[in-house]
């Protein structure tokens, strides 16, 4: 089973902190107008959210795993709800690599796998170094190509 690049933790932590910061900021702002005596609740909320977010990030990284198996891609993820997905190569419509601005900053890349399914229509593997993302995309493409059937639906 392959793990993600540890740097993805920075990315997720950053996202968690931004989220906590926004919410904490809004609450602080509202309190400033409504109940100035309770103003400290805002930063406190931020601290709690940030802590939970950071903890979640670490756990998320520890749990995230994937494997390129013989006939399917296997993913294992989720902190509260543990989700394991089997994506058979026969069902893959196409494979993309993606880099968001955040990911570019962290020097990371994601691979997105599309199927025709209604629920797992797109499966994302985040936190890959660009080289690994490209090689994974290539590998999946080959595996999918070997099984090219006419009816992906």
């Amino acid at each position: 089973m392959e793990r993600l690049n540890p740097r993805v933790q920075i990315l997720w932590a950053l996202q968690a902190l931004i989220g906590a910061g926004l919410l904490g900021g809004v609450v602080t702002g509202v309190l400033y107008v409504v109940r100035r005596d309770l103003l400290l609740l805002g930063p406190a909320l931020f601290a709690v959210l940030a802590l939970v977010g950071l903890l979640h990030t670490v756990l998320r990284y520890r749990i995230w795993r994937f494997e390129v198996q013989d006939d399917a891609l296997f993913l294992h993820r989720g902190v509260l709800t543990r989700v394991r997905t089997v994506v058979p190569y026969v069902r893959v419509q196409h494979v993309d690599t993606q880099r968001s601005p955040f990911e570019r900053l962290a020097g990371l890349s994601s691979v997105v796998i599309y199927t025709a399914g209604s629920r797992g229509a797109d499966v994302t593997i985040p936190g890959l170094v660009p080289d690994r993302a490209t090689s994974l995309q290539e590998r999946l493409r080959t595996l999918v190509g070997e099984r090219d059937t006419d009816d992906a639906v």
């Binding site: 989720g78 509260l80 709800t81 543990r82 989700v83 394991r84 997905t85 089997v86 994506v87 058979p88 069902r91 199927t115 025709a116 399914g117 209604s118 629920r119 797992g120 499966v123």
Partner: peptide, 14 residues
């Protein structure tokens, strides 16, 4: 007709 198979366990299910 199977597309993907997902096996999930919420914290309570675990």
């Amino acid at each position: 007709r199977v597309q993907t198979v997902i096996d999930s366990r919420t914290i309570f299910q675990r």
